[in-house]
Amino acid sequence: MATVWQFITRRRGGEGWHWTDVATWVWLIGGLLIMFGPAVWLTLSSFKSPAALSKFPPTILPYVTQEVRVEGFDKPLPLYEVTLPDGTMARLAEKRRVGIIAQMIDPKSPETVHKININDRKPVDMVEFATSNYTEPFLQFDFLRYLWNSVFVTVMATIITLVINSMAAFALSKYKFRGQNLILIIIVGTLMVPLGVIMVPLYSVVSALGLFNNLWGVILPTVATPTGVFLLRQYMLTIPDELIDAARMDKASEWQIYWRIVLPLAAPALAVLAIFSVVWRWNDFLWPLIVLSRSSLYTLQVGLNVYAGQLNVQWQYILAMTVVTMIPVILVFVFLQKFIARGIATTGLK
C-alpha cells in the first residue's frame, strides 16, 4: 500500500508537493465523477424496476423486494424483516395491509396472523436487474424499428458521404480547371450555413422531392458535407502529383487513378471522415425530427425524444433505450478515442 502511494505521489524531478498538484488531482477526480458519473448512474438506473425508480432516496444498485410463495395464496407475497412487539426479529410475508397496520404471516406457518405497524418492518431487498426494461421496448414498442432506421440512415449516409466527398475532393486537389477556386470558396462559405439557418426552405425542397416522411429525406441533405470535402482535399493535396503522373504513364484511366491510387492512399483521412460521419448521423436529431413524422420511420433519437416527451414518462424504458442509443458511441469512444482526439486537434473538426 505504501509503495502504491509512493508511486502515485512520486513526481518527476523528485520535488515536493505544490498546491497546484493538489488542485490538479482535485480537478481530475472531480472531473472523473462529473463526466462519467451521470452515464454510469443512467446505466445503473436502467436496470431498476419502476418501483425502485420512484423511490427516494434512490439506491445505487437495482433492488427489488423479495417475494415468497405461501400455500393458500395465488400470488407471491412480499417479504419483510419485522421487529415483533417482544423485540425479536422475524421474516414475515405481508398478507394484507389496512392503513398503517399490516397483517403478516410466517411463510412456514401461514395460520398465525401478526398485526404489525408498518413502521416496524423493512422490506427484504435483493439485487435484481430488470432486463425486461430492455426487452420490452424492443418487443412491444417500435424500438427495434427505430434501431433499424438509425442503422440504415447512419450506414447509408456514411457510405454516400465517403464516395461523393472523396470524388469531389479528388477533383479539387488533383486537377486544375477553371472555376476551381470559386467552387472551393462556395464550399468553404457554406460551412457558415448550418442547418438551423436553412431548415425552413430545406424542408420545402425535401417535400417537393417527395422525400418527406422518407429516410432518404434524412440521408441526402447530410451527405454533401463541406467539412468532408475540405478534410479529404487537404489530405489528398499531400499525395504526390508524381504518383498520378506515373499512373497516367501506366495507362490508368482517371477513374482507375481515383480508386486504385488516390482512394487507398487517402485511407487515413477517409477513416477519420467515416468515424465522424457515423457519430454525426447516429446523433442527428433536429433534421430527422422535422422530416420524420410517421412513427414507424423514427430514428432512435427521435423515438427517444417522443417517448420522453409523453405526459406519463415511462422512465424504466426510456433509460434502457438511452443506454442502447449510447452503446455505439461508447464503442467508438473506447476503440477510437485517441484517433478522434488527434483528428480534432489537427483539423478542428467536430
Binding site: V163, I164, N165, M167, A168, F170, A171, L172, Y175, F177, I183, I186, I187, T190, V193, V197, I198, V200, P201, L202, S204, V205, V206, L209, L220, P221, V223, A224, P226, V229, E254, W255, Y258
Partner: peptide, 25 residues
C-alpha cells in the same frame, strides 16, 4: 474534363440541399 464528372454527384446534392435552400430562404 473528368474533373467535372468527379465533382458532379457532390455538387448536385450540395446544390439541391444546401445552395438552393440557402437562396430561396
Amino acid at each position: 474534363g473528368m474533373a467535372s464528372f468527379f465533382l458532379l454527384p457532390n455538387m448536385a446534392v450540395f446544390t439541391v440541399f444546401i445552395l438552393i435552400p440557402f437562396v430561396i430562404n
